[in-house]
Write a protein that binds this DNA or RNA. Structure first.
Length: 888
RNA sequence: GCUCGUGUAGCUCAGUGGGAGAGCACCACGUUGACAUCGUGGGGGUCACAAGUUCAAUCCUUGUCACGAGCACCA
């Protein structure tokens, strides 16, 4: 990576080629790999695996940028750093993609294939079309160790899944049960509660008459799903409800199917809702299922797997639930059994993937009993063994875990980890086993049949912190450094999967290793468009990260995302901001272009004793930024990091230090030149290192020009450390005074509309010796900045020039004599305005100081600083007033 | 219904018990040899509202209003 020193630098930074070149360089040199560092400590991030079907969107970009920033920071800080990437097999999503493909290409359905053929096709799809996202991630500069990459369906991951399942099964934590689940009739599988999305739909309450058996009366029940009456096995009323108490124990007749069902009393019934009478359908309603269990009711399943009615559907058999509903309502009207119908908007569950209306249905499924695991998972967060950043997200975590429901883990799919449960055809023995057995351990017969279902994708995801590091295979754990990297340092993800994933990883980690899976959880924001709307395909408001990188460069995008992420919940991404930070990147490039020709003059090290006051000032400012960067990274406050380096670059380094350097570098004092080149280079190196975690490309690119050691890459260079010995307070104070005076003069010039080319004379009056000396030393800089031909410094008591405008600071008075007659009236107005402003400021403090309570009760340092401030404003005020009088 | 969050400049957001901030946008002027993807200067806010605690409240407490998110319920 040597540079030709004489190479001409382009006027603007062009990220395209640089990014590809540098990424290749880092990867080829193995710089993403964990290597023991200075601290002897390790740092590890396990990447949340993106779906194999996915393509990169802004959420991923933020996810990746955040992780990469921390990884690069810690690597430079001297940690042995591993960022471990991977991909998720995304059971339902992937299977759907492949099903769609074979339907489009061959007109065939999944069941037209044998299971193993279909799975083979899916693997083929994965090899050819899947995993695009891993290539796309590189464009962002992610510094993960690709050699560690794991796919959740790899055999290693499968080992982890089987081991965990078998252990939990043998412990009784995984059970099979007939239970009511959310059934997705399109995908024809059970899905978990978390995979159900509720959408508002128009519907109606149908008030239906149920005849009491003795013929005496009707009970009216209200329902939004009248078709489920075909599965009714009771009518329930509240035990204390006076209206219906007398019917308890009697029988009612379910309309249409004429089923005779008991009228039962159950406290679940809310007397204020509906009619106060509840039809009970244990086969197709979650609450009814519980009521059914309490009362030992029969469970009738009226649906087929595809959501059509089965043999219990009578004349409606084969119709969909919705068709049946319409037809049944018509029939009820015909029989005068529908009392009324009122329109209502209600929440209806839809499958997250298929978007089909979910039907609650009873079926045989596998469940993880989560109660005890959840208890332990709560404890580790309460005890701060696992810490959330920002902290309030632990509420979300707790709220889920404090009322744990058993987790339905079986899916009636083909693509996924097959449940390692075997049933013996001969003796009906059921057992769990990690490897496929050849015979039944009980009766030795040769025909064990494996359970057909696969596991919920989140089951393998929950084991991700373990499986990625080789668990449970000992040789793999050794090879991958399990003992070094587990528990990992920080998990970085969005808040939408705190319970899907974070909670389950903690539960599984504790279960299988008796150890937390990670120390910190940093929850980053959700990226939205500039109006705060979700980025979505249907709105067409998505911003493509790859296109953004092409247009502005990855550094600009990364910087924008980092600058937008503190502890906030959303980032409203406006492309104009990316452009703004592109300008910042370009600014850096041009600042470098300025010092580039002088690099050869620079010495390797700075010698503190040789520094002038400007150098001491910039070093002080530099160290202040270094401190800020370290602190903010450690607290995941990337917004602060960005603000700090941005502010330093523009307002300190470029605006002042470079401007100061021009007369020196273009002058003829070679010693000064050498010193200045040295400090400029020193600063630039530190700046590049500071910036590297956020904007790795431009910083590494520039580094290749300014590095001293030829084999050194910035990515593995030590991160700047705060050095108190390089804070020079006196120089900071003096420089701030200098800046104040310069700004005042520029302000005065513009106020009276002087052309920027017009040269002026300046007279400064002050009694402060330090300041006086400083100005004298820096007179040529001041005249350059203010375009003045002559600067005169006198005692405050000296005679003031006539025909001039003036301004005051707390430590000096500035006069600009004008060769033309000034507009006295205007100048008086201007001064009066300034006086009144200063007076307001002064009075604020004076008032405080005159308050006896304040003097007595406020902290001493507050009183002191208030006095100081009051004095400062007073000094300025008096200068202004006196000079106003002179003017009159 | 419960929980959490948010209300600060035109926009996006920092912030602190003690003089209201940044970036962008806006206005004016300007091509001095790093940069017009630039520079210099400027305007702009009852810190949602009300009460309380305090010497002092944008910040703490309580309430109100508005907005957002999640969960639950949905006969």
């Amino acid at each position: 990576m040597d540079k030709d020193e004489k190479k001409e630098l382009s006027k603007t930074f062009s990220p395209g080629d640089v990014e590809k070149k540098l990424y290749h360089f880092w990867e080829k040199e193995g710089l993403f790999k964990p290597k023991p560092g200075k601290t002897g400590k390790t740092f590890c991030i396990i990447m949340p695996p993106p779906n194999v079907t996915g393509i990169l969107h802004m959420g991923h970009a933020l996810d990746a940028a955040t992780q990469d920033i921390l990884t690069r920071y810690k690597r430079m800080k001297g940690y042995e750093t591993l960022w471990l990437p991977g991909m998720d097999h995304a059971g339902i999503a992937t299977q759907s993609v492949v099903e769609k493909k074979i339907y489009e290409e061959e007109g065939k359905f999944r069941h037209d294939y044998k299971r193993d053929e279909f799975i083979k096709k899916t693997w083929e799809w994965k090899e050819h079309h899947g995993g695009k996202i891993q290539k796309q991630q590189r464009a962002l500069g992610v510094s993960c160790d690709w050699d560690y990459s794991l796919f959740t369906m790899d055999s290693e991951a499968n080992k982890a899944v089987n081991k965990a399942f078998v252990d939990m099964y043998n412990e009784g934590l995984i059970i099979q049960s007939d239970y009511i689940v959310n059934w997705d009739p399109e995908l024809q599988t059970a899905i978990s509660d978390a995979e159900v999305e509720y959408k508002e739909l128009k519907g109606a309450y149908y008030h239906i008459k149920y005849q009491i058996k003795d013929g005496s009366n009707f009970l009216i029940v209200a329902t939004t799903r009248p078709e489920t009456l075909l599965g009714d096995t009771a009518v329930a009323v509240h035990p204390e409800d006076k209206r219906f108490k007398k019917y308890i124990g009697q029988k009612a007749i379910v309309p249409l199917c004429q089923r005779e069902v008991p009228i039962i009393a159950d406290a679940h019934v809310d007397t204020t809702k509906g009619t106060g009478c509840l039809k009970v359908t244990p086969g197709h309603d979650f609450n009814d299922f519980e009521i059914g269990k309490r009362h030992g009711l029969e469970i009738i399943n009226i649906l087929n797997k595809d959501g059509t009615l089965n043999e219990y559907g009578l004349e409606w058999q084969g119709l969909s639930a919705l068709e049946t509903r319409k037809s049944i309502v018509e029939k009820l009207v015909e029989l005068d059994l529908l009392e009324k119908q009122e329109e209502v908007i209600h929440q209806v569950g839809h499958g997250e993937r298929s978007h089909a209306v979910v039907e609650p249905m009873v079926s045989k499924q596998w469940f993880v009993k989560t109660k005890e695991m959840a208890r332990l998972a709560i404890k580790v967060v309460e005890q701060e063994k696992v810490r959330f950043f920002p902290r309030n997200w632990e509420n979300t975590y707790f709220s889920w875990l404090r009322e744990p429901k058993d987790w339905c883990i079986s899916r009636q799919l083909w693509w996924g980890h097959r449940i390692p449960i075997f049933n013996c055809k001969s003796c009906s023995h059921q057992w769990a086993q990690e490897e496929i057995p050849s015979q039944c351990p009980k009766c030795q017969s040769q025909n064990p049949i494996q359970d057909p279902d696969v596991l919920d994708t989140w089951f393998s995801s929950a084991l991700w912190p373990l499986s990625t590091l080789g668990w449970p295979i000992e040789s793999k754990m050794e090879e991958k450094g399990f003992s070094k990297f587990y528990p990992s340092s920080v998990l970085i993800t969005g808040h939408d999967i705190i319970f899907f994933w974070v909670a389950r990883m903690v539960m599984m980690g504790l279960k299988h290793t008796q150890e937390i899976p990670f120390h910190h959880v940093y929850i980053h924001a959700i990226v939205r468009d500039k109006y705060g709307r979700k980025m979505s395909k249907s709105l067409g408001n998505g911003i493509d990260p790859l296109q953004t990188c092409d247009q502005y460069g990855a550094d600009s995008l990364r910087f924008t995302l980092a600058a937008g992420s503190g502890y906030n919940r959303t980032i409203d991404l406006d492309p104009a901001r990316i452009e703004g930070y592109r300008n910042f990147i370009n600014k850096l490039w041009n600042a470098f272009r300025f010092i580039y020709p002088f690099l050869s003059k620079a010495s390797k090290d700075i010698v503190i004793d040789d520094l002038d006051h400007q150098d001491r000032w910039i070093l002080s400012e530099l160290n202040t930024v270094i401190n800020k960067m370290n602190e903010s990274f450690d607290e995941y406050r990337f917004d602060d990091s960005c603000a700090a380096i941005y502010q330093f670059t523009y307002s300190k380094f470029c605006s002042w230090y470079i401007e100061f350097s021009k007369p020196i570098l273009y002058g003829d004092n070679l010693t000064q030149q050498k010193m200045r080149a040295t400090v400029l280079k020193h600063c630039f190196k530190k700046m590049m290192a500071l910036l590297h975690p956020i904007a790795p490309f431009i910083s590494e690119e520039i580094w290749q020009y300014i590095k001293d050691d030829h084999n050194e890459a910035l990515i593995t260079t030590e991160y700047p450390k705060y050095e108190k010995s390089q804070i020079f307070e006196q120089d900071q104070l003096e420089m701030n005074q200098f800046i104040e005076v310069s700004t005042k003069i520029r302000e005065m010039r513009q106020n009276i509309g002087l052309s920027p080319k017009k040269e002026i004379k300046i007279e400064i009056f002050t009694d402060q010796q330090d300041f006086c000396r400083y100005i004298e030393k820096n007179v040529r800089f001041l005249s350059g900045i203010t375009k003045s031909s002559e600067i005169k410094i006198s005692q405050k008591s000296s005679r003031k020039p006539k025909q001039s405008i003036m301004a005051a600071t707390s430590f000096c008075e500035i006069f600009i004599p004008l060769d033309r007659v000034i507009n006295l009236k205007e100048e008086i107005i201007r001064l009066k305005k300034e006086i009144s402003k200063t007076e307001t400021d002064f009075k604020k403090f004076e008032k405080k100081l005159s308050n006896q309570n304040f003097i007595e009760k406020a902290k001493e340092e507050v009183v002191f600083s208030t006095k100081e401030k009051a004095a400062k404003f007073l000094a300025r005020l008096e200068s202004l007033k006196k000079n106003l009088n002179n003017l009159k």
